[in-house]
């Protein structure tokens, strides 16, 4: 018996979300005194590295037809591996890939599934695990009653840890069905940490007045190594790309640091960001609701204070 974690690679490289899922799987495996096995598919570089994050064995399905994501193909190959190895627990990332296969796999394997879990399961009596519900406004504890269980791990919930060392990679053979999809890749912003994985996020709202003013936000993000985000009206009016929109109808994130600049803090915005570990709010209105959800607040004109913060950070970075 072991825990199987599916480690997704995109363009041959693993994303942080995959490493976090591996760490999660290892922690769960240790708790149950069983082995943590990682699976990767398609073209991948450096699968040995999965060992560093906790995998004790790494299997690879080397087949180019798996380079593009198709939920039917991935479900088929993962379920074949689950059956071959007698797996009882499957761990996925809670990103667009993981969530698109979670439900499929659950049906294929007659398994119970929970998406977006944010803690290691309680296995003392039965199998119980927590996840955020009501857009982050509450946490629910679920019990899975099935023999096989599938979980997808919310990004930044337990963090990435180097708890092992490199392991050799074994090839595993399964049948790969023919895809019914014809996939081409559009704009993917290379080199930028995708929002759900970002540890530091600099976000701006309508207080910016004009899309031409975003230079100071990008500068600040660069200094911090942060990913940029925005409020919904900003994305709706085309000031920023849609994939930057966070909140209830956008992306839900939980970075270590969320800096909100010129955002009022409407409840629908907070729903997507209130699980951030530390929130800094910069707003010129002392009554802005966001201050109530913040850890640190600066009540001032953003055009004045953001460049100052950037300078202070640069000074700090050059001293460490």
């Amino acid at each position: 018996m072991s825990v199987l974690v599916f480690a997704e690679a995109s363009n041959g490289k693993f994303k942080k979300a995959a490493f976090e899922a591996v760490t999660y799987a290892r922690k769960l495996a240790d708790k149950l005194s069983i082995e943590c096995v990682a699976l990767c598919v398609g073209t991948v570089n450096g699968a040995e590295e999965l060992g560093v994050y906790g995998a004790q064995k790494v299997y690879h399905i080397n087949n180019n037809n798996l380079d593009n994501f198709d939920s039917q193909l991935y479900t088929s190959v993962i379920s074949q591996v689950v059956k071959k190895l007698g797996i009882k627990i499957v761990i996925l990332t809670n990103n667009s890939t993981g969530k698109s296969i979670l439900g499929r796999l659950a049906i294929r394997l007659n398994a119970g599934s929970i998406s977006g879990v944010n803690a290691i399961p309680d296995t003392s009596a039965g199998f119980k695990v927590a996840k955020g519900v009501y857009s982050g406004k509450a946490t629910a504890l679920f019990e899975l009653k099935t023999d096989i269980k599938i979980l997808s791990v919310m990004g930044n919930s337990i963090g990435v840890e180097k708890i092992g060392s490199e392991v050799s990679v074994e090839q595993i053979n399964v049948e790969v069905p023919v895809s019914k999809l014809d996939i081409s890749h559009g704009k993917v912003s290379e080199g930028i940490v995708p929002l759900p994985e970002a540890e530091v996020v600099v976000s701006a709202g309508r207080g910016m007045k004009d899309p031409g003013n975003w230079g100071i936000i990008e500068e600040l993000a660069k200094t911090l190594g942060a990913t940029t985000a925005c409020s919904r009206p900003v994305a709706d009016s085309g000031w920023r790309p849609h994939h930057e929109h966070v909140g209830q109808t956008g992306i839900a994130i939980r970075p270590n640091l969320y800096i909100a600049i010129g955002i009022s803090g409407a409840i629908q915005h907070l729903a997507g960001v209130n699980n951030s570990k530390v929130i800094v709010v910069i707003n010129k209105d002392p009554e802005a609701p966001f201050f109530k959800a913040a850890d640190y607040g600066v009540c001032a004109d953003l055009f004045d204070v953001v460049p100052k913060l950037n300078e202070a950070l640069k000074k700090f970075k050059s001293n460490v």
Binding site: A17, K180, D182, H185, G186
Partner: peptide, 11 residues
């Protein structure tokens, strides 16, 4: 929508 971008699919 995929993380950090978009993907086009025909089927």
């Amino acid at each position: 929508d995929i993380e950090g971008g978009v993907e086009s699919v025909k089927l």
